[in-house]
Amino acid sequence: MPAHPENISITQYHDVYPGIDIDTRLKDAAKGKVIYITGASRGIGESTVYAYAKAGASGIFITARSVADLETVAANAKNISPTVQVEPCAVDVTNAEQVGESVRKCVEKFGKIDVVISNAGYLEKWVKIGDSDPDDWWMAVVSRGAFNVIHHTVKHLVQTKGYAILVSSIGAQIRRPGASGYQSAKHQLNRFAEFVEVEYGSEGVKVFSIHPGGVPTKLATSEPSIIPYLTDKPELAANTMVRLTSGSEDYLSGRYVSVDWDLDELAKRKKEIEEDDLLKNRLDVGSLASAL
């Protein structure tokens, strides 16, 4: 029996489509919400700030290692929506104390947190395990960073019945020689999202682990072998996150979702997804599930 495929049969997009258009379908989808975003100084994170500003968020707390870059993003967001308040804060997500302090500042400033987006990323040099740098391989920005962010924000998400998004990758479903650090870390994020759902779903928290598309960011283009696959616009991921946290896709909580997927088409298979508990990490035992 051949292995089951790890991608689904569905229409895929590389740019904004009607189902995630903030001017129409998602107009005011984030109205009054407070958003906490890591890795917000450029690329997908930057685009996400603008998407939430456009969708009516009242407050956006943005973090990255460089506060100067964040201030530029904050100014741009204000140009998009003069009513939004944007608070920049320099944070190293691998430092639990810094993350905790930033969350305290966010709540002090805005009074709550409705949406948390763990987007800070890192891409190690892709070489075989025996040739890799152990410190790089452990991908602290991805794994520890995501843990620190959820650890310090989840109690606030319980209070607001809010949302968390972990930016994973389609790489979580791939075994490419040389990419064991990155792809293992992204696979871990998918399982971590499942645990957040298991532990906090009953308290109203919704969580998604997403593939943000193949976007030609500065980080992604540092690995030459994947450049031909970087064909997606950052707005595809940003607008999809707005929709995922709007309340219409709560049935996908605890699951892996690719922003390339047509969410309206996916919703037609909601019953199948829920009944078979699909889009989660699972050991495929195939025919071994049946006795001899």
Rank of each mutant, 00 (worst) to 15 (best):
S58A: 14
S58L: 12
S58G: 13
S58V: 04
S58H: 12
S58F: 11
G59Q: 15
G59A: 15
G59V: 15
G59T: 15
G59C: 15
G59F: 15
I60G: 09
I60W: 05
I60M: 05
I60P: 06
F61E: 05
F61I: 11
F61Q: 09
F61T: 13
F61S: 11
I62P: 04
I62T: 12
I62D: 02
I62F: 03
I62W: 04
I62R: 00
I62C: 01
T63L: 00
T63M: 01
T63H: 00
A64L: 03
A64P: 11
A64Q: 11
A64G: 07
R65V: 00
R65C: 09
R65A: 01
R65P: 11
R65Q: 13
R65Y: 09
R65G: 09
R65M: 07
R65T: 00
R65E: 00
R65H: 10
S66P: 02
S66Y: 01
S66T: 02
S66N: 05
S66Q: 03
S66E: 01
S66G: 00
V67Y: 00
V67N: 00
A68H: 14
A68S: 15
A68R: 13
A68Y: 12
A68T: 13
D69Q: 10
D69W: 08
D69R: 15
D69A: 12
D69Y: 04
D69K: 13
D69E: 10
L70H: 09
L70I: 10
E71F: 11
E71P: 10
E71M: 11
T72P: 05
T72W: 04
V73C: 06
V73E: 06
V73M: 05
V73K: 09
V73R: 08
A74C: 06
A74H: 02
A74F: 03
A74P: 02
A75G: 12
N76I: 07
N76F: 02
N76D: 12
N76S: 08
A77G: 06
A77W: 05
A77M: 01
N79G: 15
N79Q: 13
N79L: 14
N79S: 14
N79C: 10
I80F: 07
I80E: 04
I80V: 15
S81C: 14
S81M: 10
S81W: 07
S81P: 12
S81Y: 09
P82C: 10
T83Y: 10
T83V: 07
T83C: 06
T83K: 14
T83D: 14
V84A: 04
V84D: 05
V84N: 02
V84R: 04
V84Q: 05
Q85R: 14
Q85A: 12
Q85Y: 08
Q85H: 10
Q85P: 09
V86C: 07
V86Q: 10
V86R: 13
V86Y: 11
E87T: 15
E87F: 14
E87Q: 14
E87I: 14
P88V: 01
P88L: 03
P88N: 02
C89H: 09
C89E: 04
C89G: 05
C89D: 02
C89N: 06
C89A: 13
C89L: 09
C89I: 02
C89W: 06
A90I: 03
A90Y: 10
A90N: 03
A90P: 12
A90E: 02
A90W: 05
A90K: 11
V91L: 00
V91F: 00
V91Y: 03
V91I: 07
V91Q: 01
V91N: 03
D92F: 08
D92L: 02
D92P: 09
D92S: 10
V93E: 02
V93G: 04
V93H: 06
